[in-house]
Write a protein that binds this DNA or RNA. Structure first.
Lengths: 186, 186
DNA sequence: TTACTGATGTCAGTCACTGACATCCGCAGG
DNA sequence: CCTGCGGATGTCAGTGACTGACATCAGTAA
């Protein structure tokens, strides 16, 4: 049947994106995805904790990038600015994959269960950001609040970046714009 | 078996809280909850969209309270302040039920799936808040950002309120405290 | 009484997910 | 070249969340 075994994981992700986009999330069974990727359903669940998780493979990396950027930021940078630097860094993961990100966000927006999982990933980003700020000796509740605000900017920036007319918009610029609007609130 | 049919819904909620606390979420089947409440599993799923939802029955009301308070706030109030007034109003739903809220939040914190659902409810609160602000002619992205920040304050306030030493703490005071910390960030 | 409405019970079925066990593949050591 | 070993995969059976279709039953208005 299939002679290539390499990167079963990547094939499952691609198959899921394709099938979810075509038939929708509900009408696609885990077995469908697995078969389309040339593996068994059992193997699918060995790679992904559940059916939704297949769409959120890079989220851990994003939190990692944000953490590193925040810890690497100059100590003189205020908490909110450090957190925002983390958001811009996390966005670096999207830089070369806007088309993929657009298709993915369309699929996620189409099903409440996927939206819910995305919220969980954003919450993980909030937690990672807050932890990184605490490692910079930012006290609570400032760390938690700054993390929440920064991720809110990330979220708003992502929405604008996804629907930008510019074919290759710079994510960091959108974070800056959201941050400016945030500061203007108070 | 049971002679009283009134308020099957309330009995299911109580049964779920009890069983989740005793055995944990995973070890409690939907059928267990239903039987404990004197109904069938099918009836359980007619009242609640899924097994988790039984713990989140009041969340719609909270969003409603927040919306009303925001729309009723004086037009001169800046967006963030109006949103925060909404959060204080939403907290009114908790006022007389701290013991219940404590038990519930313990259960929710004990299982990732429940935590995930709570995030969805908070996101609904963000959406309702942002919509109410837009109805006050607050433009985007200001409305979205103010809503996110306000709900972040709600979240932080809730955590502090839940673990307060004072036996009957005032929720609105905790919202104010979080809001003050938020404003001090920038 | 009669008809209608809404809540519930019953039953069968699909599918997400899991544990236990067998198998196969690439590779280090002999 | 053989051998054993660890990791990834296949196979199979089972549990439980959730759904659709249909029957029933209580309360209520005509």
């Amino acid at each position: 049947m299939t002679r290539w075994k390499p990167d079963a994981r990547g094939r499952m992700i691609a198959a899921a994106m394709e099938l979810f986009a075509e038939r929708g999330f509900d009408a696609t069974t885990a077995g469908d995805i697995a078969a389309h990727a040339g593996v068994t359903e059992r193997t699918f669940f060995r790679h992904f904790a559940d059916k939704r998780e297949v769409l959120f493979d890079g989220s851990g990396t994003m939190a990692h990038l944000a953490t590193e950027a925040i810890l690497a930021a100059p100590a003189s940078l205020p908490p909110l600015d450090a957190a925002l630097a983390g958001m811009a860094a996390a966005g670096g993961l999207l830089a070369d994959r806007r088309e993929h990100a657009v298709r993915r966000s369309r699929i996620v927006a189409a099903h409440p269960a996927l939206h819910e999982r995305e919220l969980l990933k954003l919450a993980s980003l909030v937690d990672a950001t807050a932890d990184a700020l605490r490692a910079r000796a930012v006290p609570d509740p400032d760390a938690a609040l700054a993390a929440h605000c920064a991720v809110a900017c990330f979220h708003v920036a992502f929405g604008a970046w996804i629907s930008a007319a510019d074919p290759a918009p710079d994510f960091a610029r959108y974070v800056d714009r959201a941050a400016a609007a945030l500061r203007a609130l108070s």
